[in-house]
């Protein structure tokens, strides 16, 4: 075998464990889910092998699913904007900090050491009627009786921001770190103020990081199940909650499979649009 042929095969040999794992753990289960989506639920909750488009027709045409999907995308979008507004200054601060970047990054990563569910539930003890915030406000005499802050869409968004903010900060931070600092000096030497230098040099160059962070936050936010289940009121459901209910409560695995594929398709389309305009390279950089 020639050296060229061996070199051509080498990447595939190295990649084969990953490709095998992805095939077996992602594509094969997805194929099963796809097959399930054409099956039917029997009266007793079992599944009946068939080739029916009934689940797809319901999922696509029923206004109930459309409205919940749109509401899910809306909540994910609001969460992403809040994460961007809060995350950019934090990332900028870390990127421009002198000497203690490792410590600041460690602080940023600390929440990941605690379970996401525990972090979400912690808000109950902060925002509850006898939680930390109400107790403090009562103690300070700023309110006469506890304010009802929990179990609404705002707390769902708050919980999502808490979960997703580190992803945004890390992406923007990586982007800011890659900017040549001498460009800012050059802008200054040409008469730009610090604000002008930021607006016209730093911000445009860091936009790919901001976009990558936004994509991550949006996709993760739109697929979440725990946060609305823990912090939401009766009406505050996101699309993943419907998938859970279809599969677990209603024993309707075919419909649950269809809904999960629908959500995957919508989010996949968004990722493809992102890739078309910005490329996934920046996202990979942020994740590395």
């Amino acid at each position: 075998m020639s050296i060229e042929a061996r070199e051509a095969r080498q990447p595939w040999i190295l990649l084969s464990p990953s490709l095998t794992a992805i095939t077996l753990l992602l594509f094969v289960p997805l194929l099963f889910i796809l097959v399930y989506s054409f099956w039917l639920r029997t009266a007793v909750g079992d599944v009946e092998p068939a080739f029916s488009l009934e689940n797809w027709r319901d999922a696509v045409t029923d206004p109930f699913y459309r409205d919940i999907l749109l509401n899910t995308l809306k909540i994910a979008a609001i969460t992403t904007v809040v994460c961007a507004l809060m995350g950019y200054p934090a990332a900028y601060f870390i990127a421009r900090a002198r000497g203690n970047k490792a410590f600041l990054l460690l602080l940023l990563m600390l929440p990941f050491w605690i379970s996401y569910i525990i972090r979400t539930m912690s808000w109950i003890y902060i925002l509850g009627t006898s939680g930390a915030l109400n107790t403090t406000l009562l103690w300070l005499g700023l309110i006469d009786e506890p304010i009802q802050m929990l179990y609404n869409e705002t707390t769902v968004i708050l919980g999502l921001v808490h979960f997703l903010l580190p992803f945004m900060v890390l992406n923007v931070y990586v982007s800011l770190e890659g900017i040549d600092r001498t460009l800012e000096d050059a802008a200054g030497s040409l008469g730009a103020t610090k604000w002008q230098s930021f607006l016209q040099v730093v911000l445009p160059l860091s936009l790919p990081g901001l976009a990558a962070g936004s994509l991550l936050c949006f996709v993760l936010g739109a697929g979440t199940y725990i946060t609305p289940a823990v912090l939401g009121g009766p009406r505050d459901a996101m699309f993943a909650n419907l998938v859970f209910e279809a599969i677990i409560t209603q024993l309707n695995w075919p419909l649950g499979a269809t809904l999960s594929l629908l959500l995957l398709a919508v989010l996949g389309t968004l990722v493809m649009v992102y890739n078309h305009f910005l490329g996934l390279g920046q996202l990979m950089k942020g994740l590395s």
Binding site: R41, G45, F64, P234, R235, A237, E245, T249, Q250, N252
Partner: peptide, 19 residues
């Protein structure tokens, strides 16, 4: 109750979300 399970559980899912 089990005879109505499929219909009622699905309807409740909708009613709970404001329908």
């Amino acid at each position: 109750w089990n005879g109505n399970e499929q219909d009622w559980s699905e309807t409740f899912s909708r009613v709970a979300r404001g329908y």
